[in-house]
Nucleic acid binder design. Structure first.
Lengths: 417, 417
DNA sequence: GCGGTTTTGTTCACGACTAGAGCATAAACT
DNA sequence: AGTTTATGCTCTAGTCGTGAACAAAACCGC
């Protein structure tokens, strides 16, 4: 995001800007629109697009509709262009997808697991290696969303699954030593809530919002602040641990080791507890959904605690919008009044005057996966990322036509936007 | 901070980079060092420096010491160069200073006030107008630090002083209508804690820290997160309201209108309350200092509450460093053990392993003033800011030698760094 | 169906910028 | 006094974006 200082970097910088614009709009804007929006001369845009097409980063197709004048083109993903692999690892299953520039997602596999680091990550590592093998140099990176705090280097703790300092990159790469395929690279490992928030900021309800708060209600509660489209990350990782502040009523010990965490009062585990059911260990998704649908008292109690915490965070950070994902939207729909009423006494007077909107996510349970994808593209759509791509595509490679037509199953090929 | 896209912007961008570097190092680096650090060719640096000197933005002086080879120059503030006015408005007095590029501060006036908006701001407005008059076109902006939340446009609420939506820019400009002097421009109005944190990030203990937490303990408690040298600001203003989250024990109503604010358990008002003395209204600075120095029980109780809240914020944001200003350093010095012990049970296990450093500010009570100055320079050291400066310095002005030698009193001309 | 209109893509001369090399300069070292 | 070393200055070369002129490809009205 920083600026160019030489004329050479200028070109690289504008290449990034153009690709970024194509990606962010989902490959919908025409070349002439892009030229105007990016304040480029038509000639410059010509050269840029030609260069990017040459590098197999972009591919132009005729625009479907036009009013008058010479028809324009729509730059979109190149058939041999960059692809990101994205995974959402939940407490009980993981989902693996392939994403191209512009954000089109193709889910490749969904597989349940037993909740242990080995049981979850080893088969995932194999699946990733297989897809990397199939896609070859096109893979620009892998993003992995996980339901717990992530330290730098990919060490993950999910207290209620008994994961302590699990080295995710190492487990994923375990079988990759003797492979002949392309090197795996270091995956972008991140917290699911932070990723969901990123997705919301790029393609959801936090788009063009300067300061937004995103809360993800699953078994646990995750929360993160988005500022200028980026999550406010901690020093040691992706952060997003609003769930572990003592914002509500509870003073009981949390699995994380602290006392009185807000998250213990709000997530699916709290719902199960309210209903007098067994909870913990990442089990009971169906029962929790049943409680959410039928036990009004448990839902209201949970919503009240959610409201208290939101009020505290609104006081501190003054977001324009609060978005909810996971079980959050349903919680808000069923007990929104209780949520707001419980928060009100904890709001500063000046916040009460103009409280933020509270909205359900536009992306449903897909947020974490999409955010993992976006984070991979964030690293790719930089001067350095594009240079790497160019290095891996030497000119002589253009002569060897060893490409097979990439036809793979698209069980769920919906467009992300 | 964003990048250039045309060759013209390139030059402007490099001018900004060079000035920024000079400012950030306090005008200590030599030209050859700057050339290396900014990765410029010697020829480019030559042209840049010459241009900036021409525009009266920079002035080179011979470097004091050199090892060998041709001696180099040190670019520093120009004698007719840009000047920022900065004010720290506390509950009982304000302090006005003049700051030049590089961060040298000259305190101009210190004046107590009665705590009312009129009583505090009207004399300040007059003083500002007088100094703007004296300095003329050299004034690039005014920064005003205030001890309460600031909404966009400069509306300030200081609940315990009964300030509700006080329009600070309007009050400051009240007498400026019929003035002949230069236009006041809109002052940069901000929260004192946020400004203190900015100063800490530029010239204090948060320098080069990616994620830091700054807490300012005055009558009230302010707290703000610094990410990449910038405060995490709310949607409606400068934010920095960690003091109004229910992080500690209190559930009593706070003057802000919410219940259970952490700040009510920590600031000077809390100290006075612990000691059984009258509190509120911005009165009792001496008594509070007396309690701080002598009443160990009150100090310990306050420190414990401070520790509890810090633990919650560390869980959520994982800062590398926590810095304290105002009464914070003394509190930490006198009862650091109690502070840490009180926080420990509220830390997540993974945070407990590597807790952040807690440090007193390097700038003492000067932080808010310095931060106000930095914020003015932040707006100035941009492509747009420098263009404005150039526009106000047309070529024909260089012929008219109507400048008087600027000799003014420097009652406290210490160097900020 | 045909020429005029409108919008877009392409090409090229031009100005602005930085890099880098060569030269001049000014001090310290021998 | 001559050498060494680091820096400042000047000039050429190469790259970039701009903007104007021109070509292309659709639509519009008659």
């Amino acid at each position: 995001m920083n600026g160019a200082t030489t004329s050479g970097e200028l070109r690289a910088h504008n290449r990034v800007r153009l690709l970024r614009a194509v990606h962010d709009c989902g490959a919908t804007r025409t070349r002439s629109q892009l030229t105007r929006d990016l304040r480029l001369a038509r000639g410059t845009a010509s050269v840029l697009v030609a260069g990017l097409a040459e590098d197999e980063l972009l591919h132009e197709e005729p625009a479907r509709e036009h009013v008058r004048g010479r028809p324009t083109q729509v730059p979109g993903p190149h058939p041999y262009g960059p692809v990101a692999l994205a995974v959402d690892v939940r407490e009980d299953a993981w989902e693996l997808a392939e994403c191209e520039l512009g954000g089109r997602v193709t889910v490749l596999e969904v597989r349940p697991h037993d909740g242990t680091p080995e049981g979850a990550l080893r088969p995932l590592g194999e699946a990733l290696a297989a897809h990397r093998d199939r896609l070859g140099h096109r893979v620009i990176g892998t993003g992995v969303a996980l339901a717990g705090p992530v330290r730098h280097g990919g060490l993950v703790d999910i207290a209620h699954l008994n994961w302590h300092g699990v080295d995710v990159p190492a487990l994923l790469a375990a079988d990759d030593r003797d492979e002949a395929g392309p090197p795996a690279g270091t995956p972008v490992v991140g917290n699911d809530t932070a990723f969901a928030a990123v997705a919301e900021a790029r393609r959801g309800r936090l788009r063009d919002v300067r300061v937004g708060l995103h809360l993800h209600v699953d078994f646990d509660l995750g929360g993160v602040l988005m500022v200028d489209g980026r999550p406010v990350a901690g020093a040691g990782g992706v952060g997003a641990e609003f769930g572990h502040m003592p914002l509500a009523e509870s003073r009981r010990p949390c699995a994380c080791g602290a006392l009185g965490c807000w998250g213990a009062d709000v997530g699916a585990n709290a719902l199960l507890r309210h209903a007098g059911l067994a909870h913990g260990g990442g089990r009971g998704r169906e029962q929790a959904e049943h409680v959410l649908a039928n036990d009004a008292a448990a839902v209201e109690a949970t919503a009240r605690m959610l409201g208290r915490g939101i009020a505290a965070l609104v006081n501190a950070h003054d977001p324009e919008v609060v978005t909810l994902s996971g079980h959050g939207p349903e919680l808000f729909e069923r007990a929104g009044a209780a949520l707001l009423a419980a928060g009100e006494p904890y709001l500063m007077a000046i916040r009460r005057e103009r409280p933020p909107r509270i909205e359900g996510s536009a992306l449903g349970w897909r947020g974490a996966l999409l955010g993992a994808m976006e984070s991979v593209f964030d690293a790719f759509l930089t001067v350095e990322g594009l240079e790497l791509w160019r290095d891996n595509h030497p000119d002589q490679a253009r002569d060897t036509p060893d490409r097979q037509s990439v036809t793979h199953s698209t069980p769920d090929g919906d467009r992300a936007l």
